[in-house]
Write a protein that binds this DNA or RNA. Structure first.
Lengths: 122, 122
DNA sequence: GGAGAGATGATACTCGATTCTCAGTTATCT
DNA sequence: AGATAACTGAGAATCGAGTATCATCTCTCC
């Protein structure tokens, strides 16, 4: 296997994904390539430091990563396969929910349900 | 201190809170009462089993708990004190974000920013 | 070809969250 | 009061995520 290029392998896999991936998810996708878990973490960390990746936190713990060049978007979390999918578009009227004295600096919307594959398979 | 009533103490503290609390948060609020952490976890677990409590997961890991009798609502997560506040009201237009073939069964909206206390103090 | 720097995989380790264990405590029933 | 079962607090044990370590490998430069 090639060395010194694992970082690229990691970034590429992330770019090809249809949503943010956790370190473990990413690692299992690269399992055939012999990349170590530590390398995945290192590549992700470096990617974030260099501004190429962004870490996102969704429900259920774990941090996931995705390329930073994507527009503002939200996620669909499949309760069956636990995979997160990007959703493009946003919602309105969030400001009206903010109580007096609170300052909203961002928001996160996560839709829950079953994805295409899991819903069909069931 | 009274025994056999710690479960009630825990449920009451949760009912009086202005948002979902994590086990630790709850424990620190009860620190004066001598309730043990294990007891807090036990009370929460029993509360969920008996249908009185609901566990919610927000960004940033940790599971939080709140009484199940509350209406559909969302949360405001303060990035300074890391406390979650209930927000009543909801948003529209979420269905339009769902891709073909996906089935939405629920949604979660979390507003991020600084709460009343933290914003004022800063 | 050889030296040095950076990258890598395997694994040990750390840290926090949650659960388990156990002996002592309390309420209930007789 | 005595027996029994449920409850409790403290601390040990467990588990998973993420990090640190280390010997090895690869690339670059000389």
């Amino acid at each position: 296997m090639e060395r010194a290029k694992q970082q690229l392998t990691v970034l590429r896999a992330l770019a090809e994904a249809d949503g943010p991936l956790s370190a473990r998810e990413l690692w299992s996708r690269l399992s055939g390539t012999g990349v170590g878990l530590a390398t995945v973490y290192r590549a992700l960390q470096r990617g974030v430091e260099e501004g190429m990746l962004e870490s996102v936190e969704l429900l259920g713990g774990g941090v996931r990563y995705e390329p930073k060049d994507r527009e503002h978007h939200h996620y669909f979390l499949c309760s069956t396969c636990d995979h997160a999918f990007d959703l493009f578009g946003c919602v309105e009227g969030l400001e009206s929910l903010v109580p007096d004295g609170f300052q909203m600096m961002g928001h996160e919307v996560v839709l829950l349900g079953t994805c295409d594959g899991c819903g069909t398979a069931a």
